[in-house]
Design a protein around this nucleic acid. Structure first.
Lengths: 233, 233
DNA sequence: CAGTGGTCTAGACCACAGG
DNA sequence: CTGTGGTCTAGACCACTGG
C-alpha cells in the first residue's frame, strides 16, 4: 500500500503534493490537522509543519488558525525571477559584455521620475545614461537617476569603467524595490542607440530601489528587440 | 546598548538584516555560527537557523556546511510575481471582466508550439483563440493549444461561458511551467482584435505548463498597449 | 471558549565538505 | 577527521479566530 517510508519533511511535502495532484484532497477541501498527519506519517508535528508551510508558500494550500488547512481554490502559483547584474546576465549566456557611458550629469529629475522615487526627493539627482553591449551588439539602455544623498560615494566612482548598475549592486545596500515590466515603442534616440527601427517593440523594465523609505535610484532599462525574460513556475 | 529583547525568529532576522545593512558584517565576510548567535541572542539554535534560512532564501546570505555563513557578494535578490487568472487580474483592478471565444478547433500545432511543448506531442491539439475585455475594452488575446490527452474533460467544457484560462486553472493540476516575457509588434490580426495600431508594442507572455514531463498547454497572452506587470523586491 | 496553526526549546544525530 | 549547517524529536506554550 504505502510506498517508500517517510523520512524527512521533503518526503512529507512530496506525499502532500501527490495527494493534491491526485485529487485525494480536492480544491477547497480541508485536509487533516498537523497532529493527525504527524501520527499517520509517524513523525513529529514540527516535521509536518515544515512540509505544509513549504507547500503553502508555493501557493497550493491556504492555512488559517483554527480554520485548518485547505487546498487552494485558485492555485495562484508564484514565479520567482532573479534580477541579476546586467554584466552577469550577458556573460551568463556566453556573450562578451561591453559598456559605454554616454552621459553623466546632475540636475532636476522629470516629474515621472520624482513620482516614482516617492516625491520626497528635493535635491538634484545624478543622471546617468549608458549603453550595454552583448558581443558588440547593443543590448540594453540604462537610463538612471540616483539620489546622491543616499550613496555619496558614487561621486568618486569611475562610471566609465564600471556601470552604475554594477557599482550600485555592490556598494548600495537596499531593503526593497518596485519593478514594472512593459512593452514600449522605440523613441528616436532609443532606436538610434539600439540600432533598431523607430517604434520597434522594446521590452522595458522600470525599477526603483529603496533604503527603507528613501529612494536610492530609479532606472529604466530598455532592451534591444528580441530580448526575453525567462522563468519557471 | 542592545535594544528590544530578542523574542522570536523574526527578531533575529531583523537584527541580522540590520547588521548586514549597517555593514557590521561586510559582503563576503563570514558571520558567527548558529551556535554562537544563539548564545548571543539567548535563544535556541533552531530559532537562529530559522532566521538565517529566511535571509539566505532572500539571497543575502550564502550558507554552506562546514564553510559557515557568509554575506552574499552579489545580492541577487529574487522578485516573486504572482500569476493570477486573467479574470481575477481584471477584477482586481476594479474593472469588469468580459470574454469572447473566437475560435475553437482541433488540429496539428505549428512547429514552434510543438517545440515549446516538448515535441513529444503526437496527437492533434485543441486550439483556442479568445479575447478578454476589461470594461468593454480589449484586454488580452488568449491564443492557446491544449493537449487533450492530459485533460480529456475539457472536451465537455463550455468554453463560450468560461475561459480556457479559468477552466484549466481550476480543473488541471500542474506540477511546473515555463514562462517567457517579451515585447512583440502587433500583427494585423492582433491589431484588429486589440483595436490598436499595426506594429504597436505589445507586452507578451508565453507560458507552457506541465504535469511532470508531459505538456498540458501552451498559451500566448498578448496584452493591449499600456499593459504592465508589477512586482516588488 | 476551544481547536488549530505558529513558534520556541533542549538535545540529538546526520550529511557534507574543508583542512 | 572535524566543524558547520540541516534536520528530527517530544513537549510546551502562545496567538489567533471560528463557533
Amino acid at each position: 500500500m504505502s510506498l517508500a517510508r517517510i523520512h524527512g519533511w521533503q518526503d512529507v511535502e512530496a506525499e502532500v503534493l501527490r495527494r493534491i495532484h491526485r485529487r485525494d484532497w480536492a480544491p477547497g477541501e480541508i485536509i487533516p490537522t498537523e497532529a493527525d498527519l504527524a501520527q499517520e506519517f509517524g513523525c513529529a508535528r514540527a516535521t509536518v509543519n515544515r512540509a505544509l508551510r513549504a507547500v503553502a508558500e508555493a501557493g497550493l494550500l491556504d492555512r488559517r488558525r483554527k480554520a485548518g488547512t485547505r487546498v487552494a481554490l485558485h492555485p495562484v502559483r508564484k514565479a520567482t525571477l532573479e534580477i541579476p547584474m546586467i554584466r552577469a546576465d550577458v556573460e551568463g549566456s556566453g556573450r562578451r559584455h561591453g559598456y559605454r557611458l554616454i552621459r553623466s550629469d546632475i540636475g532636476e529629475a522629470p516629474d515621472h521620475v520624482r513620482h516614482a522615487m516617492g516625491g520626497a526627493v528635493n535635491t538634484d539627482l545624478l543622471h546617468i545614461l549608458a549603453l550595454h553591449f552583448a558581443d558588440a551588439r547593443p543590448f540594453v539602455i540604462e537610463d538612471r537617476w540616483v539620489n546622491p544623498a543616499t550613496v555619496p560615494a558614487i561621486a568618486k566612482a569611475d562610471l566609465t569603467a564600471i556601470s552604475a548598475n554594477e557599482w550600485l549592486l555592490t556598494h548600495a545596500p537596499y531593503t526593497g524595490g518596485d519593478i514594472v515590466f512593459s512593452a514600449q515603442p522605440a523613441s528616436e534616440s532609443q532606436a538610434d542607440l539600439l540600432e533598431c527601427a523607430l517604434n520597434a517593440a522594446l521590452f522595458t523594465i522600470h525599477r526603483t530601489t529603496w533604503d527603507h523609505d528613501t529612494a536610492i535610484t530609479h532606472v529604466r532599462l530598455t532592451y534591444a528587440p528580441g530580448h526575453a525574460l525567462r522563468t519557471t513556475l
